[in-house]
Structures are given as structure tokens and as C-alpha cells.
Design a protein around this nucleic acid. Structure first.
Lengths: 218, 218
DNA sequence: CAAAATAATTTCCACTTGTCTATTTTTTCG
DNA sequence: CGAAAAAATAGACAAGTGGAAATTATTTTG
């Protein structure tokens, strides 16, 4: 099944022309659509018209709807992973693991706020077993080598954090605090139609990160 | 829009025959399907054949696909709300708000584990604004009068908990800890294919509830 | 028991879906 | 230039969709 999902782009790379821009637009559009409405709730034609191309082009480029989905997930996951491993917030030298985890959580939630689709996608695909879920997990969650999980392990090993499994702490962060920024339509509706400003969003992110770190302290 | 979603069941109550059982089966099936695959990803025919009736019967009983969705949500929300307000875990007399909140969280997560569809549904519908999201929020989240939110307010007022908005704490519980039991396909895949036993599930629930309560303590 | 009313199914319709096969447009480079 | 190659589009197809009417089965009622 994975091979089916991984096999895409049947055309040829076109040595001279890279032209990555329109592709990225299509993949962003596709990822958002798949994340918000679920795989079966999106049509290739919707995505195509949303970024101004014909549906046949998407099928030609990515082989199938599944191929388009996999390419979109790769695109989004790649961006998130790159951002999470590349730009850690500056901290005073010798900052403890507690302080570093807090900063990493805030970084992570900022990245999710900029691209909520990944969390939304995990919410949608994680609800039931499928070849797509297997693809995501095997491709991106087998080696949970993100900075945050490393910090969780470090803090646990050094006795600063209590003995909480990494999966639990990470899920609380990604799906709990993540929901605060990835499910903004829901949060804003519950909070009474008042749109969240960047300032209140930052405040929310800090509070949520704080709650998680405090919940871990020994 | 709400009137459209709320209007359903055009037939007549049939004075002699209550026959609620098949209806409940259909609504359970529908709720699970809508939660796992999203509104547009489910066909009325799928739901109908899954519970052994014709698709026209569902349309006749609930007016439309939207009506079926609203009825399924009402059914599931009603069940959860009833369970949450009716059966609090027995606690030693004079238990503090911290202990009561921990018990309430565990109760809540147990209810979610028994009916993951509600959390899954909020994950799916909360990702983008829609008439359906408005219906849910206006019908069930305007008055957040669940035991848990009352405890959050009580603990905050009495100074036992820090000054964390109820929305943040509740979201961390419902979507973070909730994901641990509602997104079990994802969690089990990440944890390496080992199916969660009831015992490990209880352990997970307790740890997650513990983390949230600790995160709130002043 | 027939007649009326209700419940449920079958049938139909206009429309959308994914995928495949032409066809047309654009680019490349001798 | 201008032909070969590639990119993009248009069109066709069977399968599936929500909805509503037509039809059959079942129950209620006088």
C-alpha cells in the first residue's frame, strides 16, 4: 500500500525548467483541502480550480488522487520538519531543559499556527486505520527525532520531568495545545465570535506551553 | 441556517409504536461515519447499507443529509452530556477541587473512549467555519455548564489553580488527552502496532489527567 | 375482512466523481 | 524558423451522489 502512495509524478523532471512555484501552490491548496474536509470529502476538480489549473493536470503530475495527497503531505511535513529542526528560539546560554522545552513548544505552536493543516490532517486521518495513516506514521513518525521529543527524553532521563511517556506528552502538545491554534474556527466560535489577534494568540500559546511544561515537572 | 439543520423528522410520531431502537442504531452509525470521514466524505447510502435500511428511508426520516447529521450529533452529544452530568466518580467526603477535577477528567476521558466520535467530530468540524460548526457551538457550547468547566472555574476562583482561561484548559483536556483515546488508530500506529489493552488505556488516561491537573496548580 | 394510512423500498434524475484517452498548446533546440 | 518533446487541456466514461417521485409492503382502523 505504501508503494502505491509513494509512487507519483509519472512525467519527467524536465531538466531545464524547475518551475517549483506552481507545484507548491497546488500542494498547499491540496493539503489545506484534504486537512479541512478529509480525503474523501475533496475532489481533484475542487483543488484544481482553486489553483487555476485543470483537473487532468493534477492527475498527470501526481498520477492519481492518492498521489496528490501523498505529495501534499510530503510538502507540508517537509516544511514543518524543516522549520522545527532549523530555527530554535535563542535562549540564554546554559538554559535548563525545562526552559528549552518551553521555548520549543512555543516554536512548535507558532509553526502550527502558520500551517494548521498538518495538525488538522492528523486529526482527520488518525480517527481510523487506513493506508494513508500507515503512510504518515511510517514515513514521519517512526523516527520521532524532533527537537521536542528529544527534550522530553532528556528531561525525563535527567529527572527534571516526571516519568510520563513521550507519546502522552507529545500528544497533549500537538493535539491539545495544537487545537488552540489549528482549530481556530472552533475556538473563536466558542470564545464568542471574537477573532483572535496575533497578541492574544501568542498569549494563548504561551499559557498552553506553560501548562504542559508544568505538568511534566517532577 | 440553524433552522435548516434543526428541522428534521417530517413524519409523524406514530402514537402506538415508539420503535426507538433502529433509530438509535442509524444515528450511532451515522455519527461514527461523519466523525471518521467528514460530512462530505460520507454518503447517505453508506450509512443506510451499514445499518441495513435503504437510503431513502434515512432521507424520509431526517429530511436530508444535513438533517441526519444534526440528528446524529444531537444523539451523540445528548449521550455524552447525560453521562457527564449523571455519574460522577465517588470521592471521599470533602475532597478538594484538585482531586475532584482529576476524577472528572478521568470520567470524561472514559466517556470519550466509549464514544470517540464526538471528539473526532469536533476535530473535523472545528477546522473550518461552517453552518455545521455554528450549529454545534450554539447548541452545545454556548452554555459550557459541564461539571469539568465548573470545577475549572471553582479552582480558579479559590486560588487553587492558576489563572488559566477555561477554554485553554478544556481544549487541552478534550483535544489533547482526548486524542489519546479518540485517535487510537494513530496512537497505536505511533506506539508501534501494539494494541492498547484496557489496562494500559486506563494508565494513559490517568497520566494525562494528572498532567493537566498539575499544569493548573498554582 | 376490506379500506385507509403509514412505512419502506425501488426507481429515476440531474449532477459530480476519479481516471483514462485524445487533443491542443507551449517550450526546446538544431 | 520548424519539427520534436513536453506540458496542459478537453472530452468521455462508468460509478456514485443527494434528492424526490413512484411503487410496494405493512400496519392500523372502521
Amino acid at each position: 500500500m505504501i508503494s502505491t502512495l509513494a509512487r507519483r509524478r509519472r512525467g519527467r523532471p524536465s531538466l531545464a525548467d524547475p518551475s517549483p512555484a506552481p507545484d507548491a501552490l497546488c500542494l498547499d491548496t491540496a493539503l489545506t483541502a484534504f486537512a479541512e474536509r478529509g480525503f474523501e470529502g475533496v475532489s481533484v476538480r475542487d483543488i484544481a480550480s482553486a489553483c487555476g489549473v485543470s483537473h487532468s493536470l493534477l492527475n498527470a503530475k501526481f498520477g492519481s488522487k492518492q498521489g496528490l495527497w501523498a505529495a501534499a503531505v510530503d510538502h507540508g511535513m517537509g516544511g514543518l520538519h524543516r522549520r522545527m529542526t532549523a530555527a530554535p528560539t535563542r535562549l540564554p546560554a546554559g538554559a535548563g531543559v525545562e526552559q528549552r522545552l518551553r521555548a520549543a513548544c512555543i516554536d512548535f505552536l507558532g509553526a502550527v499556527a502558520d500551517c494548521p493543516a498538518i495538525v488538522q490532517l492528523m486529526n482527520v486521518e488518525g480517527a481510523r486505520a487506513s493506508a494513508r495513516l500507515d503512510y504518515i506514521v511510517e514515513t514521519y513518525f517512526c523516527r520521532l527525532d524532533w527537537p521536542i521529543t528529544a527534550l522530553l527524553r532528556e528531561g525525563r532521563a535527567s529527572g527534571v520531568f516526571r516519568d510520563v511517556p513521550v507519546t502522552i506528552a507529545f500528544t497533549l502538545l500537538a493535539h491539545g495545545a495544537g487545537a488552540l491554534v489549528a482549530l481556530r474556527p472552533l475556538i473563536e466560535a466558542v470564545n464568542g465570535q471574537l477573532k483572535a489577534t496575533p497578541a492574544t494568540l501568542d498569549q494563548t500559546v504561551e499559557m498552553a506551553a506553560d501548562m504542559i511544561v508544568r505538568g511534566l515537572l517532577a
